[in-house]
Design a protein around this nucleic acid. Structure first.
Lengths: 233, 233
DNA sequence: GCGGCGCTTCGGGGCGGGGCGAAAGGACGG
DNA sequence: CCGTCCTTTCGCCCCGCCCCGAAGCGCCGC
């Protein structure tokens, strides 16, 4: 926790509709250009540039220049967790008539770079129930059985270890239970996408910053995840 | 998750230093009067009144008039969770030189109405490791062993059941692991305070909104919690 | 019932910040 | 090497809101 001034400064970065729209769009884990984010936010390019500069300055967004494009990503999973939690609070305070994109948004979605929704919570529960993860300072460590099992699934464990945190919890606002984040969360999601166990669902509207996050579980994925981790459909 | 406009409106309520100071003070779980909150925020009574009206209007704070005083509390544990998470992000983005109030703040503190810090995380881990809690939709349920064990500790289970959620996780930003919230979290904290297993530590400065949240574990408390739940000192 | 206290409402000043249009960097492609 | 495209910087206007001082309202205690 920090001083009220630092707290308020960080909150202020989230407190403008255009910035909120940009951050919600970046919660899909994709790296988007300034122009795409301007369209998502519904503002002109100059205003978007100013907002993005502020988000980068504040440490919420990282930028990767590539040619004449500048790709923007969320700076860390802490940022994603804060956006998710605050989104849950906003939904509790001012409930939308229907969940955006229907029930699917709660079933399976991306939270920055890892899996969330009922799928993400079930994965986390399955991993711990099978004894593949053990509590460790600052998060979770993989047991011997976990290393073997995850490798058999096709998860890139060396890549997962390169992350700042190997595995930690991230609160799922729709399920109110933790799901798995950290390097292992990222590689697990990458593995599921690579093997087409889960797929990105097409966005409905261009202007909707949440559209890019929806996921669907394929029949193959449902079967494999049930076999390996007891994840129910 | 909600529209960017609703998200930003909620974030804006947190985005002013006076309101942030008030909310951080209310995170102690105490109900404070408008005048006390004005002093905490370092502003005059008129400005404080305006801010509080806005927080109440936004659903973040609840007010209980009593005579000529108006006591304010956080409206729900969702609000507390969002403030905690956002505080963790602010700390990650702009790290304070030292943790406020030293190491004690991470060891044990109140998060609205339940226990947080290493103590809170250890309690949650102990409860699940002993099989006293089982996953349930929207949080946790108590097993038969859990009901017996908690009652033996002196936890008021009927009171815990009156809450909207019996037991659910709340992310601990300093430990990056979940601790127990919901009605059971509240009654567990109340039990520990009532039996003097943990005590409120005196605040250092009047103006510091975080001072009221620090807790200390008594020798008696350390012994009982270690016996019952394996909580290490 | 009357003064005192806590809190809120009202009016006015000031500042920060968002938005756009126009113009200026860079980078790619022909 | 020059047009085109993406992005940023600059200048300007304006809206919103934060703050304080003064005044109004309600509750308590004498």
């Amino acid at each position: 926790m920090t001083s009220p001034a630092a707290f308020a400064a960080t909150a202020a970065l989230l407190a403008e509709p255009p910035r909120a729209a940009m951050l919600q769009a970046l919660l899909s884990g994709e790296a988007l250009t300034a122009g795409e984010l301007a369209r998502v936010a519904g503002i002109g390019a100059p205003a978007a540039s100013t907002h993005l500069a502020r988000l980068v300055e504040g440490g919420l967004v990282a930028v990767h220049p590539q040619g004449r494009h500048r790709y923007h990503r969320l700076a860390s999973e802490e940022v994603a967790a804060a956006i998710e939690t605050l989104g849950g609070l906003a939904a509790a305070v001012a409930p939308p008539r229907r969940w955006p994109h229907g029930e699917g948004f709660r079933a399976a979605r991306l939270c920055y770079d890892h899996l969330a929704g009922r799928l993400g919570v079930a994965l986390q529960a399955g991993l711990t129930a099978r004894g593949w993860l053990a509590p460790a300072p600052g998060g979770w460590a993989a047991t011997a059985a976990g290393e073997a099992g995850l490798a058999a699934l096709g998860v890139d464990l060396p890549a997962a270890r390169t992350a700042r945190r190997f595995a930690c919890d991230c609160m799922d606002w729709s399920e109110r239970r933790p799901h798995l984040a950290g390097g292992l969360g990222r590689e697990l999601a990458a593995c599921c996408l690579r093997r087409h166990w889960v797929t990105r669902l097409p966005g409905t509207r261009e202007g909707d910053p949440l559209a890019r996050r929806r996921l669907g579980v394929t029949p193959e994925g449902a079967r494999r995840l049930h076999e390996a981790l007891g994840v129910a459909a």
